[in-house]
Structure formats: structure tokens, C-alpha cells
Simulated scan of single mutants.
Amino acid sequence: MNRAPITLAGEEKLKAELKRLKTEERPKIIDAVAEARAHGDLKENAEYHAAREQQSFTEGRIAELESIISNAEVIDVTNLNVGDKVVFGATVVLEEEESGDHVTYQIVGDAEADIEAGKISISSPIARAMIGKSEDDEIEVLAPGGNKVYFIESIKYI
């Protein structure tokens, strides 16, 4: 089985969420289910059904996180010695050819991707276009609005 790559920081974040769900959310939901059950008739008890739905969602997320963590290959990007090439974990500053706008992305695993935080999945088209490239290289990315051309300004491993 292929193990999915994940950064050390990404693994720590997922473990923190898992711990919170198990130690804080799960006990709250169990109490809510017990309290709702004490109200009587379960067929027409909206509190009970809402608590059970929340319990189902939380248990599903716990199982998902456990699976992701157990199948992950943790990569500490600060220990990588790859020279000046873009690889998994790199933080890359790009300049868009047409507008001159600058964007910064860190290439991370699928489970930790968050475009709002500048973290893009290793399987995304822009990350795939960057892999193996060096500073000052040009990359072309097929975007929904058409092809975009970027220049790699800098590569960091932080």
C-alpha cells in the first residue's frame, strides 16, 4: 500500500484534532445523548436525534483521522537536502507572468491542504508543475480560466 506523504506540522495538527475529538467532543456528545434519552420517547425526541447525528459525525471523523495518521509517511521538510529543486514540503514563491502578482504556496499532503493558508496538495496541478523545478524556472499550469505561466522566485524548506 502506498503511504500518503504528510509534513511533520500537518501530522501534529491532525493528532491535536484527534485528541480534542476523543477527549473533549466525544464525552460531551455521550452526555448529550444520555440526557436526551432521559427525556423519554425517542421517536419524537429531536434532541436525541441531533445528538446521535453529531455522535455519528464525530465518530466518522475520528475514524478518518486515525486512518490518515496510520497510513501517512511523515516527512520533516527541515531535514531535506535537495539542493535548489522543488520537492514535497517546499515553500515556493511564484510570480504570475501576466499580472506580476506574487503567491506563496507550500506543497503538502492531500489531508493537510488548505488553499486559504497557502498549502496546496502534492496532487494539485500547480504542485505537479513545480516538482523538480528550480529558481527562475518557468512553469505552465492549466487553470480553469486558461493556461497560466509562473516564474519560480524562491524555494524554502521551513
Rank of each mutant, 00 (worst) to 15 (best):
N2W: 11
R3Q: 15
P5N: 10
I6W: 03
T7V: 11
L8M: 14
E11K: 02
E12H: 04
K13H: 02
K15T: 12
E17R: 07
E17L: 13
L18D: 04
L21C: 06
K22V: 03
K22I: 05
K22R: 04
T23I: 12
T23G: 02
E24A: 06
E24M: 10
E24S: 06
R26S: 11
P27G: 05
I30D: 15
V33A: 01
V33P: 12
V33Y: 01
A34E: 15
E35F: 10
R37W: 06
A38K: 08
D41H: 02
D41N: 06
E44Q: 09
N45G: 06
N45K: 04
Y48G: 00
Y48E: 04
A50F: 11
A51N: 04
A51M: 07
A51Y: 01
E53R: 06
E53M: 09
Q54K: 09
Q55P: 13
Q55F: 13
S56E: 11
T58V: 15
E59H: 08
G60E: 10
I62E: 02
A63D: 15
A63R: 14
E64R: 07
E64W: 03
L65F: 07
L65P: 10
E66N: 11
I68L: 04
I68R: 00
I68S: 03
I69D: 03
I69Q: 01
S70D: 08
S70M: 01
N71H: 13
A72Y: 07
A72G: 06
A72C: 13
E73T: 13
V74P: 05
V74I: 15
I75D: 06
N79K: 15
N79Y: 07
N81V: 14
G83N: 07
G83E: 10
V86W: 09
V87K: 01
V87H: 02
G89H: 00
G89F: 01
T91N: 00
V92P: 08
V93P: 02
V93F: 03
L94V: 11
L94D: 03
L94I: 12
L94A: 06
E96M: 12
E97M: 14
E98F: 05
E98W: 03
S99R: 02
H102W: 03
V103E: 05
T104V: 12
T104H: 01
Y105K: 02
Y105W: 09
G109A: 13
A111H: 05
E112Y: 08
D114W: 03
D114H: 07
E116F: 05
G118W: 05
I120P: 05
S121M: 14
I122Y: 14
I122P: 09
I122S: 11
S124D: 11
P125A: 10
P125M: 10
I126M: 03
R128Y: 00
M130P: 09
M130V: 11
M130I: 11
I131L: 08
I131Q: 00
I131W: 01
S134I: 09
D137C: 12
E138L: 08
E140V: 15
L142R: 02
A143Y: 14
P144C: 02
G146N: 03
K148Y: 02
V149M: 00
Y150Q: 00
Y150S: 00
I152E: 06
E153T: 12
I155T: 07
K156H: 08
K156A: 07
K156G: 06
Y157M: 00
I158C: 03
I158S: 04
